[in-house]
């Protein structure tokens, strides 16, 4: 679970897929200060289009308590068309439909409610296209 302070600063990448493109072509969705391979510090801000491919996935049957009402759910590692890698749930499908190599699109969804009185966590998930 996030608290509202930590949650708020992650909004640009989580809500609208703000990413960084470094000179080498490396694209990172996670906020970075240097290109981990080249050490280059200059980058441009880009917004990912939200389409990509599943590199691998799993179906989670036993989760942390905060996610237990969603099980079983699919989690995948996705490479976006810009080359950024990310981990996200794949929703609106039966787990059997998911494949390595499947094409997906990122959508805006609720991740969890923080109990009955905490903040609602939103972010990206993927749907098959």
């Amino acid at each position: 679970m996030a608290n509202s302070q930590r949650y708020t600063r992650e909004i640009p990448h989580r809500y609208r897929l703000e990413a960084q493109k470094f000179k080498s072509g490396f694209v990172s969705l996670s906020r970075r200060y240097v290109d981990p391979e080249t050490g280059e510090q200059e980058y441009e801000k880009i917004i990912l289009k939200g389409t990509g491919t599943i590199l691998t996935y799993t179906v989670i049957y036993v989760s942390a308590d905060a996610f237990s009402k969603q099980t079983p759910f699919v989690i995948a590692i996705i490479e976006t068309d810009e080359g950024a890698r990310l981990t996200a749930q794949v929703v609106d499908c039966e787990p059997e439909e998911v494949r390595i190599g499947a094409r997906v699109e990122l959508v805006f969804r609720k991740i969890i409610n923080e109990g009955h009185s905490g903040i609602i966590n939103y972010g990206y998930k993927a749907v098959l296209i």
């Binding site: 009402k69 969603q70 929703v91 609106d92 959508v107 805006f108 969804r109 609720k110 939103y122």
Partner: peptide, 15 residues
């Protein structure tokens, strides 16, 4: 879906 509410529905419609 369990992860949809008025906000996520609004975001998708507005997109």
């Amino acid at each position: 879906n369990i992860d949809e509410d008025t906000i996520t529905i609004s975001v998708q419609a507005a997109k």
